[in-house]
Simulated assay, not measured.
Amino acid sequence: MNHTLLWRVLVLAGCLCCFQSVQADDDMPTNTTPATNYLGASLGTASSEFCTGLNNCGETSNTWKAYSGVRMSDKIFIEAAYVKFGEQQGLDGSTKISSNAKGYSTAGVVTYPLNAQIELFGKAGMWWWESEQKSTAGTQATDGSDILLGVGANYNLGNNMGVRAEWERYQRSQGSAAKQALDLLSVGVTFSSL
């Protein structure tokens, strides 16, 4: 999934949010019980400063993640996830350099419902990551833990299914091969009330 397609999906989701907000009226359910937990999976595209100074550089495979959350109160979740970033490759002269990362995360998620179908959210938490950078000189592996931040929106499709669009920033501050933060734009499907 390229950046242009993902941006179009996010813009469409934003337009749907605006349309639904305008259409919302006083007959919105007031006593609906929110889902207690959920599972989901997303596909996306990641970017970082890895490509700075490299030629023909970009992400060569899709980034994906799987996540699960438990509602702690009316507007607060605890979410755990596994994320695998697509490999980024580029050329430094004639030398091919590649980088990849993966990790686990735990975050607090605060939600704000716009109406019965659309819910905005923000998140903050920690992730524990492993990263590899490969070149003809060899492989350099690093790992660590750092913060993650994110914002997004959920759109309720009914029958305990929803669509989620979000942006997240995964910090990486340890080691010269993995000091660049990773920005992730993703769209996925969520199943709730499990």
Score class of each variant (00 low, 15 high):
residue 133 Q to N: 12
residue 186 S to R: 04
residue 25 D to M: 01
residue 58 G to Q: 06
residue 117 Q to W: 05
residue 14 G to W: 10
residue 113 P to A: 09
residue 159 N to L: 00
residue 173 S to M: 04
residue 2 N to L: 01
residue 139 T to R: 14
residue 107 A to Q: 04
residue 116 A to R: 10
residue 100 N to C: 00
residue 12 L to C: 10
residue 15 C to E: 03
residue 141 A to T: 13
residue 150 G to N: 09
residue 35 A to E: 03
residue 133 Q to W: 03
residue 72 M to N: 05
residue 130 E to I: 03
residue 62 N to V: 08
residue 98 S to Q: 10
residue 86 G to T: 06
residue 103 G to H: 03
residue 172 R to W: 01
residue 138 G to S: 12
residue 17 C to T: 11
residue 169 R to G: 08
residue 22 V to W: 14
residue 104 Y to G: 14
residue 166 E to N: 13
residue 188 G to N: 05
residue 102 K to D: 15
residue 90 G to C: 06
residue 47 S to C: 01
residue 146 D to V: 12
residue 32 T to A: 14
residue 5 L to V: 14
residue 82 Y to I: 06
residue 182 L to S: 08
residue 180 Q to C: 06
residue 145 S to H: 07
residue 178 A to C: 06
residue 190 T to P: 01
residue 55 N to G: 07
residue 7 W to M: 04
residue 171 Q to D: 13
residue 189 V to G: 02
residue 98 S to Y: 07
residue 132 E to W: 01
residue 112 Y to D: 08
residue 178 A to V: 06
residue 92 D to M: 10
residue 67 Y to T: 07
residue 122 G to P: 03
residue 190 T to Q: 09
residue 147 I to H: 10
residue 82 Y to P: 01
residue 110 V to R: 02
residue 65 K to D: 10
residue 18 C to S: 10
residue 46 A to Y: 10
residue 91 L to Y: 11
residue 163 V to N: 05
residue 80 A to Q: 13
residue 80 A to L: 12
residue 5 L to F: 11
residue 183 D to F: 12
residue 13 A to F: 03
residue 143 D to G: 05
residue 49 E to S: 15
residue 50 F to D: 02
residue 108 G to H: 07
residue 49 E to C: 10
residue 145 S to N: 15
residue 194 L to Y: 11
residue 60 T to S: 05
residue 140 Q to N: 15
residue 27 D to Y: 11
residue 104 Y to P: 02
residue 104 Y to D: 09
residue 20 Q to T: 14
residue 92 D to Y: 07
residue 74 D to H: 13
residue 123 K to S: 05
residue 125 G to D: 08
